[in-house]
Design a protein around this nucleic acid. Structure first.
Lengths: 146, 146
DNA sequence: CGATACTGTAATCTTAAAACGTACAGTTTG
DNA sequence: CAAACTGTACGTTTTAAGATTACAGTATCG
C-alpha cells in the first residue's frame, strides 16, 4: 500500500480541525511533512469526490466540504488507494504447465481482493471525526514533556 | 506488504501438491519464478516454525511437515510478514506544535495495527489445502486453450 | 489592468526498498 | 572425496515511491 491514503486522512483531519480556515497546499504539506505538489494531487481527488472545496487565487486553498462525523476512512481509501493492498510482485508463471505455477497468481489475487473487502469493512467504522478525537486524546507535545 | 507472504504460500501449496517428493530450492524457485536464494531464505523461516522439513546434501530439499488442512494463511503471514500492512512512509512530525501533525503518526499506526488484526482474522479461514483446492478448480493451461 | 498568490497537472529527477545474483561455508550421500 | 544440496551473507540491479521543478490557469486586490 502506498501512503496516499495516510496523507488524505491526515489532510482531512487537519481541515476538520480548522473548519473556518482555508488551508493552502503549502500549509498542509508542512503539517503532513511532504511537498505541496503531492498534496495538491491528492486534494484534487478528494475534491472530485466532494470531500473538500478548493479555491484558486489569492486567499485560496482547501476547506472541508463534508461532515467529518459521517465520512469514513473506507470512503477515503476507496477513492484514493483502492486495490493497493496486494503487492505488485506476482508469483508463478501462467505459461508453466504445472497448475500450481500457472494458477497461483489468480488465486492470490482473489485472496487479496477479498481481504481488501474485510479491510474496508473495518475502515467503515472509523470516521474523520473519530480520527481527530483520537488525536486530541493523545497528549500535545508540550504536555508530553511534563 | 512485501511478497514474501505470497512466495511462502505458493511454496507450501506446491509442497502440498507433491507431498511425496523432496523439492529443491531450484525447482521451487522456477515454479514461483524467482531465484533459489530467496526461496531458501523464506523456507528457512518456515522450517524454524515447523511447516517444512529440510534436508541438506544430495537428494535434499524441502518437504511439507504439517497438515495442509490445518495450517492457515494467518500462521504463515504471522511468521513471514507480520506488521507489513502499514506503509513505511510516516505522516506528520512529532516535533511540530500542531497536535494534528505531532500525533497523526501514532494514530495511523494504531489504525493499521488494528486493521492487521482483521486481515489476519480473514486469513485464519484459509488453509493451505483450500488454496490448493482453488488452484485445482482453476483450469490447467492446456484446458484454457480449448 | 497587471501584480500577486494561489491551484492543477505533467515531466523529470532522486531515493529507498525490493528483488536478484553471486559466493562460499556447511552438510549429506554415494 | 566429489557431487548436490542448504544456509546465509553481501553487493548489485531494478523498480516504485516520493520530491522537485516548471508552468499554465484562475481568483483577488490595488
Amino acid at each position: 500500500m502506498n501512503s496516499e491514503f495516510t496523507i488524505a486522512v491526515h489532510s482531512l483531519a487537519l481541515l476538520a480541525h480548522i473548519p473556518d480556515h482555508m488551508a493552502s497546499s503549502e500549509l498542509i504539506a508542512k503539517n503532513v511533512r511532504t511537498n505541496p505538489a503531492r498534496i495538491r494531487k491528492i486534494m484534487s481527488i478528494l475534491r472530485n469526490h466532494g470531500f473538500v472545496r478548493t479555491k484558486e487565487g489569492i486567499g485560496g486553498g482547501y476547506i472541508l466540504a463534508c461532515n467529518p462525523e459521517e465520512v469514513t476512512l473506507a470512503q477515503i481509501y476507496g477513492c484514493v488507494s483502492n486495490g493497493t493492498l496486494k503487492p505488485h510482485w506476482c508469483s508463478g508463471d501462467p505459461e508453466e504447465s504445472c497448475m500450481v505455477s500457472s494458477n497461483m497468481h489468480s488465486v492470490m489475487d482473489q485472496i487479496f481482493c477479498e481481504a481488501e473487502v474485510y479491510f474496508t469493512n473495518y475502515l467503515e467504522r472509523i470516521t474523520i471525526a473519530s480520527v481527530l478525537e483520537k488525536i486530541k486524546q493523545g497528549l500535545c507535545p508540550l504536555e508530553k514533556e511534563k
